[in-house]
Simulated assay, not measured.
Amino acid sequence: MSLSPTTLSALYWRETGHVVGALSLTGAGPVTDVAALTGRVLPLGVGVAGALPLAVALPADRLGAVAADEEPGALAEPLSYGVETAEGRARPTLVRLTRWTGGITLAHDGITVRLPQPVLAATTVVALVGDAQETLSARGVIGEGRTSLTLPLSVDDGAYGVLVLAAGWAGRLHREELTTRAPGP
């Protein structure tokens, strides 16, 4: 008995190359039409036990799609993989990105991203912050030899889904809760 070959379609954030979703199909060709895979937006769900799920909405016009070489890890942890491009075309081999923890601080007036070590070259960073109504985005560059930057955003108290994409580093998706503390006596 022969099994039908599987194909992997990977959706990626064009600006940084981060894989934001992957779909494995059996017996069918890969789908590389972003609109066919997502519609107008790709919602990335952020859930926490005991809390309502939030979504960070990724606009389809900022995504690309590629028929990728089979990479089972991309199905379970898509943000841990990236797409490299050459001459404006996505390569089919996904690359594993460097993991990192901590280093993301959301405040009412912006989001600070601190990488664990200085970057060797200018590094593009995109942050998307979503609540039940909308998703805000901000972009910046961490300069060579630096570790951090603060991107301006204006957010109120509440729960937010936060997606941070720093080129070459694994993407991070989590939930943040902002509250204003009453001034002390």
Rank of each mutant, 00 (worst) to 15 (best):
V66A: 14
A28K: 13
T32C: 07
L23V: 13
E84L: 14
R91K: 12
G88P: 11
G29Y: 01
V56L: 10
L63T: 03
A74D: 09
A90G: 11
D69H: 12
T85E: 15
A68G: 13
L52I: 00
G64S: 03
D69S: 14
E84V: 10
G88H: 07
A57C: 08
D33N: 14
A28P: 01
P78W: 02
G45T: 14
E70Q: 09
T32H: 06
P72V: 06
E77H: 14
P92L: 05
P92N: 09
G88M: 09
S80T: 05
A68R: 02
A68L: 03
L79C: 09
L25N: 07
G50E: 05
L42M: 07
A36L: 12
A90M: 03
V41F: 13
A67W: 03
P43K: 02
P59K: 06
A28F: 15
L79Q: 07
E71Q: 13
A86G: 14
G47Y: 03
V83I: 03
L75I: 05
P59A: 10
L23I: 12
A36R: 12
V20I: 05
A22P: 03
L75S: 02
A68M: 04
A22Y: 02
T32G: 03
P43W: 00
G27Y: 05
V46D: 10
T32L: 04
A28S: 14
P92R: 02
T38V: 09
P30T: 01
G21A: 15
V48I: 11
A36F: 07
V31Y: 01
A35Y: 10
E71I: 00
A60S: 15
G73T: 00
P72R: 04
L25F: 01
L42P: 09
A67G: 15
D33W: 01
V41G: 03
A68H: 00
A90L: 06
A60D: 09
D61E: 14
R89G: 00
L23Q: 14
G47T: 12
Y81R: 07
V20H: 10
P59N: 06
S24T: 11
G21V: 00
S24C: 12
V34W: 08
G88L: 08
A60R: 12
L79N: 05
L63R: 08
V41D: 12
A74K: 02
V34F: 10
A68Y: 00
T26M: 11
E70A: 13
S24Y: 01
Y81C: 04
E77M: 07
A36D: 08
P78Q: 04
P78Y: 06
T26W: 04
T26V: 12
A22G: 13
A76Y: 03
L58M: 10
A55E: 14
E71R: 10
R89F: 14
A49I: 04
L75D: 01
V34Y: 11
V46P: 09
V56E: 10
D33G: 00
A76F: 02
V48L: 15
A36G: 05
R40Q: 15
L42G: 11
V46W: 06
G47M: 02
P43H: 05
P53I: 08
G29L: 09
V46Q: 08
A55W: 04
R62H: 14
A90V: 02
R91H: 02
G82F: 00
G50F: 06
D69P: 02
L44T: 05
V56P: 08
P72L: 08
R62N: 12
L63S: 11
L42N: 06
A86M: 09
G73P: 00
L75E: 04
A22M: 05
R40S: 15
A60T: 08
G47E: 13
D61M: 01
V41Y: 12
